[in-house]
Design a protein around this nucleic acid. Sequence first.
DNA 1: ACAGCGCTGTCAACGCAGTTGACAGCCGGG
DNA 2: CCCGGCTGTCAACTGCGTTGACAGCGCTGT
Lengths: 226, 226
Amino acid sequence: MTPEERGRPVRLDRERILDAAAEIVGTEGLPALTMRRIGAELGADPTAVYRHFRNKRELLTELADRLFATEPELDPQAPWAERMRASMWHAMRRYRSHLDLGLLLAGQSDELPSLVRIREESLELLTEVGLTLEQAAMFSQVIENHVVGCGLFFAISGWHSDPPHETLEAMRRFYALLPADVAPLCREAAPHLCPDPDGVFAYTTDLLIAAIERTAAAAGEEVARA
Amino acid sequence: MTPEERGRPVRLDRERILDAAAEIVGTEGLPALTMRRIGAELGADPTAVYRHFRNKRELLTELADRLFATEPELDPQAPWAERMRASMWHAMRRYRSHLDLGLLLAGQSDELPSLVRIREESLELLTEVGLTLEQAAMFSQVIENHVVGCGLFFAISGWHSDPPHETLEAMRRFYALLPADVAPLCREAAPHLCPDPDGVFAYTTDLLIAAIERTAAAAGEEVARA
DNA sequence: ACAGCGCTGTCAACGCAGTTGACAGCCGGG
DNA sequence: CCCGGCTGTCAACTGCGTTGACAGCGCTGT
């Protein structure tokens, strides 16, 4: 209602705007993030934002970069597989929280600093275990697909929070009620369908880690033989 | 310009509307699919659509169901691994073409007939090779995550068509130009980064198939021992 | 110290989106 | 034959991103 706090027009900068945007996305989700809503959050005119960002896309890009810039804490003492696993889990959780944002920005494929940082760390881990740069680049992509695919399942359904046990249960009930002549296996397997997403992620993650270690060992043997 | 073809107001039904919508999405992409655009395509008033669909979401849901309802042709003579591979490739291509749609609708998690059909076929293949229903349910999810994750990489960038060789090359050039003190590995591995998406998919696909066969064999041994 | 200019917030408005309610014409059933 | 409902049309509402004109604050150069 009041465009000013204490008789003075509000003073904005990119930082304050991004703070407000992050607050809105965090509490109300991405669809609620409109220019007008940001203006309201700041107690300023919506169009004031355009003095600091060219357009909404630029704002979203910068916001995404900020939200993706969290680093996993890896214990450098831990064995390699442990660190790899922790890194992948961290990446998955990051996507899980903000995949809608990630999708929007990746859509225009701006190369964000935070994404570069993620790729760099991925390559560090993969080369450390003995992969060539070419192999590391390949597995880095395999991992990213894996992480995105799993993170998607959360973001897709709007579950920003952790385990939507009730939703999964509702889906299982749906499968259980399918007519037997249409989807007999779905009906029969209903109690096991929509398995715990974390469990699925854990399984595939370990599968990939094992494949990486196997590849690294094979490369190592070749080197030793020569 | 003329709302009628031969002096008569146009006559619509769900089928004709969905045809028009599919045509628009196919040629101009999902963002171009507006109610007004559909009306124009049909030579009718945009609001006429609301006589046949409650709102745009209902239309999108039905459209997605139609676009996802393509079946892979599997040679029943072929060995199991071959059929599994073909099925996964088909699924990936399906997502690749229409992932934007898939995301939008899965967002509201309507259970579409075509998605049920896909799950049913997945379970058929997985139980055929010897998995229990529980294992099959689990791997079915693993496969879906894998397929979505890879399909995403295409849809994300708006490449509905096949191989965006030039785009990948541009990204590699970007990585090559990074300052060495920020991302030395990205810089060094640049020529190998952004590997061919089909190659990445093929690798992970074979990895999963091998894991499934191993699991099935282990289960078979247990049965044989008992 | 003061004139001037640019940065930045405000206001009104545009175009386009989805959607609604009132109206009108066509159709089929009693 | 008439009436009621289905369905296309029209005008309009709300909300979105965005633009251009305007106004005030504050910094700079002389």
